[in-house]
């Protein structure tokens, strides 16, 4: 196939990319790392996730023996999910996280006691 025939064929084929946000997003693959999900019921307060998180996203709350996190810092490495012994942390498929407010409700996880939320 030469250069010209490739170009001509491309004229009649669909674009390579998806016109998001005009069209719905492409489905994410299995194993996609999106926003962190936390189930405080299952958490035993072992702090392993705090130790391995590269960005200090997760904070330990000593009184409740639970954790709180702010997704604004998360780099979606899923290291915390891997070490959590009880499966209290999971990665969701949600990647629509853009916002102009860093105190956005969607970024916060875990029991309340966050400075940003009390404004």
């Amino acid at each position: 196939m030469g250069l010209v025939s490739w170009i001509v064929r491309n004229l009649f084929s669909r674009p390579m990319t998806n016109r998001f946000p005009k069209t719905p997003p492409v489905p994410v693959p299995e194993g996609f790392r999106g926003k962190l999900q936390y189930d405080p019921e299952k958490c035993i307060g072992c702090q392993l996730c705090v130790r391995v998180c590269p960005t200090q996203t997760i904070k330990f709350l000593p009184e409740e023996k639970k954790i709180a996190f702010w997704v604004g810092r998360c780099v979606f490495c899923s290291q915390c999910v891997e070490v959590c012994p009880t499966g209290a942390l999971q990665m969701s498929k949600n990647f629509l996280l853009a916002s102009d407010d860093m105190h956005d409700e969607r970024y916060m996880g875990g029991p309340a006691r966050r400075r940003g939320m009390e404004r």
Binding site: Q56, K59, W70, G72, R73, M102, R113, R115, G116, M117
Partner: peptide, 10 residues
């Protein structure tokens, strides 16, 4: 650091 949680290590 711009961390809205309490007790930030930084």
């Amino acid at each position: 650091s711009p961390h809205p949680l309490e007790g930030d290590g930084n």
